[in-house]
């Protein structure tokens, strides 16, 4: 089994969570922080196996919640619920088209944030919600949509640069080489 893709996806998720917690540029300019985990989940659901999708949900969700005031584990289910159906139906999705990636990124980003809030409210928590949350939701959805094709491109590039190259067959076979020496005799 090749562990390159799962390791790459999980490492990126690890860095994405750290980046979201340390870089507050989008929060200053747009009023909301953009979550990259849903976009990574779209890539994992379309291009990796179910174990990677599960690991991304669990480890990504845990990492996100460890920096947040969210109860630990609340982000796991929304990520998995968004990624699982995509993974199951991935053969029916035109995964290499940027338009499909953008639509999936938007849908998953919107779904993950809405489901997390629903879980929080269901668990008796009182998150900061108001009319401004609608704007934040739009920013997160648009941010996720824009980030998805970029993440696809980044992973493809990383795969090309760091991964194993496919073994290519060449026409030359040593057993079919004409032995000039015999002919010369």
């Amino acid at each position: 089994m090749n562990f390159f893709k799962p390791v790459l996806i999980l490492s990126f998720a690890f860095l994405a969570v750290f980046g979201e917690a340390t870089l507050s540029g989008p929060r200053h300019w747009l009023g909301a922080q953009i979550d990259l985990l849903p976009a990574v989940m779209v890539y994992a659901a379309l291009k990796a196996d179910i174990v990677t999708v599960s690991l991304l949900s669990v480890l990504g969700g845990l990492g996100f919640d460890s920096f947040s005031a969210n109860p630990l584990g609340v982000s796991i289910l929304p990520l998995f619920v968004a990624g699982f159906p995509i993974h199951v139906r991935r053969d029916l999705i035109l995964r290499d088209l940027p338009f499909a990636q953008i639509v999936l990124g938007a849908a998953v980003s919107a779904l993950v944030s809405a489901l997390t809030l629903l879980l929080l409210l269901n668990g008796g928590k009182q998150p900061l919600i108001g009319w401004g949350s609608l704007w934040q939701w739009i920013v997160m959805t648009a941010g996720g949509a824009a980030a998805t094709p970029l993440i696809f491109a980044l992973f493809e590039w990383c795969g090309r640069v760091l991964g194993y190259r496919p073994h290519s067959e060449i026409g030359f076979r040593p057993d079919r080489e004409i032995r000039h020496r015999k002919i010369l005799k």
Binding site: V17, E20, A21, T22, S24, R27, A32, Q33, D35, F64, F67, S68, A69, N70, S113, T116, L117, L120, P127, L128, I129, S133, Q136, M140
Partner: peptide, 10 residues
């Protein structure tokens, strides 16, 4: 660090 979630202020 800041809270990565938009619904908390920590």
């Amino acid at each position: 660090m800041r809270d990565p979630a938009n619904w908390w202020r920590t």
